[in-house]
Design a protein around this nucleic acid. Structure first.
Lengths: 149, 149
DNA sequence: ATGTATTTAATGTATATACACTTAAATACA
DNA sequence: TGTATTTAAGTGTATATACATTAAATACAT
């Protein structure tokens, strides 16, 4: 759907402005569908993102600040997100033995189980979200990578 | 910058997943730079978005629900955003004469002045944010429009 | 004309984000 | 060694978002 229809705006100042608006609107489109998927599992998109980072560690612990660096939204509060996930039993947190300022975080079996249950649903959702063919997706990924300085 | 570097993730499940992550990350990149620009003016990106919609009315009032429909984030709470802008004197709100359930919202002179002060800065920021040439931007806009069902 | 359904905006509540600040620990270095 | 600086995580606070609910006005079927 053309962005002009989606937000009922006929003209844009220029194509730079239109691209920014288009990117922001597309984000909102993705996040709202992802939220609906995650909701029955008691997860927000950013909480899911933290879980996914932890799973990528293959059992190794990772510190809160490393989680923060890998997050999609660099401004989100990894400390509080980890706390929420801990309350749900999806992660454990323990003092790092080599540096007592740091906290090692690991995903639990329960956390892994939730990710497993979500896996196929996310796979399907991703395909629905990005209705482009393979070569178009590659083009999109390249444009996004180039766009950011 | 390649998304793999940006979030320190070497591999993605597939290109659909990579595209979703790339879009979410790009959004965060844009929003954080926009926030910094708006902050000295006491505006959040979504408040700015409401002001911009009101300006597009060229002096005609618009109801809260129409603002909501035109917002980039359809889930945001136009009612509360209008209230915030009213507190700052950037909009006025009055009962709609033909339907007393509705509320007519208009931008004030002060609101217009703030937009005017922001205009050139936003123009420059948009160019910085989207570091692509004309034909690439058109391609990006087309891909985003097609991507959303 | 009356009762029911729908629409509109506002509000309550839980959660998330942005960002400054605090605390504790580790490190640098005079 | 002792003091200063830096780093890591957590916390306080204001604001924003998501979503359900409420209250009032209007539409509409019977």
């Amino acid at each position: 759907m053309k962005i002009e229809e989606a937000i009922q705006q006929k003209v844009f100042k220029d194509i730079y402005n239109k691209a920014v608006v288009n990117l922001l609107y597309t984000n909102s489109y993705i996040v709202s569908k992802q939220s609906s998927l995650f909701k029955p599992f008691g997860l927000s998109p950013e909480q899911y993102n933290v879980l996914r980072i932890l799973k990528g560690q293959n059992g190794n612990p990772i510190t809160v600040s490393s989680i923060q660096e890998r997050m999609l939204n660099k401004m989100s509060n990894a400390s509080r997100l980890v706390e929420k996930l801990k309350q749900k039993g999806m992660v454990v947190r323990e003092e790092c033995p080599t540096d007592r300022r740091q906290v090692d975080v690991k995903i639990t079996e329960d956390g892994l189980k939730v990710l497993e249950e979500l896996q196929e649903k996310i796979h399907i959702l991703n395909r629905e979200l990005i209705s482009l063919d393979q070569s178009e997706i590659e083009l999109l990924n390249n444009l996004l990578d180039k766009l950011r300085v």
